[in-house]
Design a protein around this nucleic acid. Sequence first.
DNA 1: GACCAGGCACATC
DNA 2: GATGTGCATGGT
Length: 220
Amino acid sequence: MQNNKIMEIYQLLLDRFGQQHWWPGESEFEIMVGAILTQNTNWGNVEKAINNLKNANRLSPESLLKIQTAELAELIKPAGYYNIKAKRLKNFINWFFGQYNGKLEYLERVGTDTLREELLSIKGVGAETADSILLYALARNVFVVDTYTARIAARHQLIEPGADYEELQYLFESRLSSDTKLFNEYHALLVKLGKDYCKPKARCSNCPLKHLPYKLTFEY
DNA sequence: GACCAGGCACATC
DNA sequence: GATGTGCATGGT
């Protein structure tokens, strides 16, 4: 059996960057809200939006259930796409109350596969958002895939370019022990690598993984 | 000013 | 089933 390149990369990134302490957030609920707000958006902008919600005393399930969509949109403006994200947050919160009366303790009893299906049925919650919620808010063993994951995996020829979400997720899940802490740290490290080195149009000259096979394509 | 950022739904072919 | 488009602020 060939040695596990996926695990090797993890060790390299951890040695290089150290623990990332993800997900930044003070509560499970805040993490779930952040997962929707960060869709295709810089985290710094999300923090501004979350602070607005906190300062307005709106960052609770009950408050978000009651708030008008237009008012919510105004508060989350810095996160971008604020109208559509306000609707998505509302869709999420309506599901949360509809299914679980807005109580985390009920939601936490549900099996991971069922929960994932339910999350994906919410308009505005796709695979990455659902998996971020499952892993980072609810400590379930699912590997989160994002654009960084796809870019890094494609450039280092870990997978065929154009691989879809499920294929990328399987690549990592099948080669790692099913460990929440490992999945948590690995995804965060990939984001760190993507932000600092594996950029869309960067040559990655100082890439920590540069000893690996590497093929730059600007499509990734 | 261009480019990018921890996506997703929907239209169209 | 694949591909294109709208959504939007803020940092580099």
